[in-house]
């Protein structure tokens, strides 16, 4: 029972981080139909940035986090402006190919700046353990859950109430109609990349805190695929459920079965779900009037 509780907390904490990163991925996809293969590398870059700020520069962690977020947003905007925007109007596939290139560049850059070896990282989430009943769970993981959920809630508010949030949903629904009311595609793309880079960096910071800083963190970029497909591409709630399912599946299979199955099971589930529900568990309903 105690092991179950520990695993559940562990699964939910990584799951909510997945959800956060997945929402960033979806934001770009919805705004421009672009599948961003560099999402995991943006996350990796965020992890190393916070490492750089706190360890190499010796900044207090609060300042480090703020600076990391600002730099991440700047990188997102810069990528959109220099790499993606010139391709607006070209076939989407060329933008997708560019993100694959971007992924290699970011990875090489990270490698050149910080090397391939794992780094020790002074955690800024509360350390130690917390007792829940008879079980003890890691405090940083426990804190990560509400933290990620809070950020997801902020994003949900942005899409519901902010001018740019509504514009992004509008452009995803009908591009011509959105253009006709003066919504600017370049601006929406820029906001999407800025937001996406920030969610990736925040996910990277939290993950670095929990599992340490190393290049393998970029693999989380691949985890967003089962998450978004399970959760559907249309709601933050869907991403949360998708993230929770994948996160929990990973730790349960790892904890109870082992043998490296935790790396495969999410994808097996993904295939099963796609066979039964091609639009994911929470895919957007296609509105048909009668």
């Amino acid at each position: 029972m105690d092991a179950f509780l520990q695993l559940t907390v562990a699964g939910l904490s990584t799951g909510m981080i997945y959800a956060l990163v997945a929402v960033g991925f979806v934001v770009i996809y919805k705004a421009s139909d672009v599948i961003n293969f560099a999402q995991g590398d943006l996350l990796l870059f965020g992890t190393y940035l916070i490492f750089f700020n706190i360890v190499q520069l010796g900044l207090p962690w609060t300042v480090g986090v703020v600076i990391t977020v600002i730099i991440a947003a700047g990188i997102g905007l810069l990528i959109e402006r220099t790499v993606l925007r010139p391709l607006i109007g070209e076939p989407v596939i060329s933008m997708i190919m560019v993100t694959i290139g971007l992924s290699s560049v970011l990875r090489a850059l990270t490698n050149a700046l910080w090397g391939p070896q794992p780094r020790a990282f002074p955690p800024f989430l509360p350390g130690g353990e917390v007792s829940i009943g008879t079980a003890t769970v890691a405090a940083d993981r426990l804190v990560a859950i509400p933290l990620a959920l809070g950020l997801l809630a902020l994003l949900a508010l942005f899409f519901r109430y902010a001018r740019d949030g509504i514009a992004m949903r509008a452009i995803a629904d009908d591009q011509l109609a959105a253009l006709s009311m003066g919504i600017s595609i370049p601006r929406v793309f820029a906001v999407a990349w800025g937001l996406s880079a920030v969610t990736a960096a925040v996910g990277g910071m939290m993950l670095g805190n929990i599992v340490g800083v190393s290049p393998s963190i970029a693999a989380v970029g691949l985890r967003v695929f089962p998450v978004v497909i399970l959760g559907g591409l249309d709601s933050i709630g869907g991403a949360i459920v998708g993230g929770a399912i994948i996160g929990l599946l990973e730790v349960y299979t790892g904890g109870y079965i082992g043998h490296g199955l935790n790396l495969i099971v999410p994808y097996i589930v993904l295939i099963l779900v796609l066979m039964v529900r091609p639009y994911g568990l929470f895919g957007k309903e296609v509105i048909e009037r009668v």
């Binding site: 001018r163 509504i166 514009a167 949903r169 509008a170 629904d173 009908d174 011509l176 109609a177 959105a178 006709s180 009311m181 003066g182 919504i183 249309d234 957007k284 509105i287």
Partner: peptide, 22 residues
């Protein structure tokens, strides 16, 4: 534009707010 083209997954109110984008 021709054919109405409302934002189907936005509420009526959100559609109006989108109209006021500029």
């Amino acid at each position: 534009v021709e054919g109405r083209r409302v934002f189907e997954h936005l509420t009526v109110r959100e559609n109006l707010i989108a109209g006021a984008y500029t």
